[in-house]
């Protein structure tokens, strides 16, 4: 049974990668947009470029995983293709996980390219034992966030529009380009409620001269993962009841 579900999750993810993710709009959202954003900050302050790398990687994780998540679920719900997946001998939860894993794999590809490019190009030496777990769990968190927004709204444009709100809020409030410590007290408190804060914190820890433990970040990211994934699964099942 579990084997059947894992097989379906893999095939759904692979199919989504091919049909939705590896297309110019998803690639531009996932990689070009964070790179352009980072370049803008680099041009403003070229001496601090290394400081921007954790933020660039975090943004790539966020934007690549959510680039087409709203499309892959809402669009297929509208076309009826999602029903076809639900007719297969697997649970609705596995179908949703397949969709989440599509975003995860695409995010992993984009993030790996950006990370390898910057690490090799700038001769950086991150602690991979910190960077890899934080990166992987963050990819799952934001792909699940995209899935949740996708099942919350009926139309593709609604899901994409409402998804932009937390995405851009997080870019400004989670330490991607501005340090959280430099923000007013109430914004610092707000940033603690946003998952990207822990992604950025974990990646910064991996890139710092004296790498610190990222257990707290990993734990909180795991909590966010459950907060996004479980309601998304429940809502998808409910749609078909």
């Amino acid at each position: 049974m579990i084997r059947d579900d894992l097989r379906c999750i893999y095939h759904i993810a692979a199919k989504d990668m091919r049909t939705y993710y590896l297309k110019p709009p998803a690639v531009s959202w996932g990689m070009v947009f964070p790179a352009a954003w980072t370049l803008a900050f680099y041009l403003r302050s070229p001496s601090n470029f290394d400081d921007l790398i954790p933020g660039l990687i975090a943004m790539t994780i966020l934007f690549s995983t959510t680039a087409a998540e709203a499309v892959v679920i809402n669009f297929e719900l509208r076309l009826g293709s999602l029903e076809r997946l639900l007719l297969a001998p697997v649970s609705a939860e596995s179908v949703l996980l397949g969709k989440v894993m599509g975003g995860f794999f695409f995010g992993l590809l984009m993030t790996s390219m950006v990370t390898l490019g910057t690490v090799l190009g700038l001769d950086l030496h991150p602690d991979l034992l910190v960077l890899i777990p934080v990166g992987l769990i963050s990819l799952l968190v934001f792909s699940s966030m995209g899935a949740l927004f996708s099942v919350l709204f009926k139309e593709v444009f609604e899901a994409q529009t409402f998804l932009n709100l937390p995405r851009f809020l997080m870019v400004f409030l989670c330490g991607v380009v501005y340090p959280i410590s430099a923000m007013p007290w109430w914004l610092q408190q707000t940033s603690q409620l946003l998952p990207l804060t822990y992604t950025v914190e974990g990646i910064r820890a991996a890139f710092s001269a004296a790498p610190s433990s990222s257990s707290k970040d990993l734990l909180l990211l795991a909590v966010f993962l459950m907060l996004f994934l479980l309601p998304a699964m429940r809502m998808l099942r409910k749609r078909f009841e």
């Binding site: 379906c8 199919k15 049909t19 009826g80 293709s81 076809r84 997946l85 297969a88």
Partner: peptide, 26 residues
Amino acid sequence: VVPDSSNLYDELSARENLLFMAKLYG
């Protein structure tokens, strides 16, 4: 099951659609 609408994947070829379904059903 053949639903009332033809809901296979527009982006995939006829052969790819059948292979994808075959994979889903093991």
